[in-house]
């Protein structure tokens, strides 16, 4: 059995919550995160531009047996569907790997981390419905 090695980067080519930084900037943020964490960086996969498409993320998840983790440019690149996100957390944790959001500097190693990140996600989803002036 191959020993897991390195952390696969994951960047986007479309806007997520209104954010669409250049791909080389996304990679810089991921590389910097990996350097600070002492991770071996594996070249990033780039998600397709079609809204709602996560085919490349699905592909990256198939690598879980052979990588130590996945470093997303942002946790907000995960699917908007809550059940799909939770399934990804479970899949990563069950494989003994970890999931990271580089720009947020947030990491998921276990269920407690996943719950914390999920809280952030749900609040982020609710923010557009909140008053902006009081």
């Amino acid at each position: 059995m191959t020993e897991a090695f390195g952390y696969r980067g994951y960047i986007g080519s479309r806007s997520y919550f209104g954010q669409n930084p250049p791909q080389h900037v996304q990679n810089l943020v991921i590389r910097d995160f990996c350097r600070r964490k002492g991770f071996d960086f594996l070249l990033s996969a780039t998600e397709y531009a079609m809204p709602g498409c996560h085919m490349m993320l699905n592909q990256v998840l198939t690598e879980l047996p052979v990588v130590q983790g996945i470093v997303l440019y942002s946790l907000f690149m995960l699917p908007r569907d809550t059940e799909k996100r939770r399934a990804i957390y479970r899949r990563v944790i069950d494989s003994g790997a970890s999931l990271h959001g580089a720009v947020e500097s947030q990491s998921i190693h276990g269920a407690a981390d996943a719950a914390r990140v999920e809280d952030i996600w749900l609040i982020r989803m609710a923010l557009p419905h909140c008053p902006t002036n009081l």
Binding site: S13, R14, Q23, A45, T46, E47, Y48, A49, M50, C53, M56, Q59
Partner: peptide, 10 residues
């Protein structure tokens, strides 16, 4: 390099 269209990648 997995199968892709660059147009799908930005």
């Amino acid at each position: 390099l997995p199968l892709h269209c660059d147009v799908w990648d930005g």
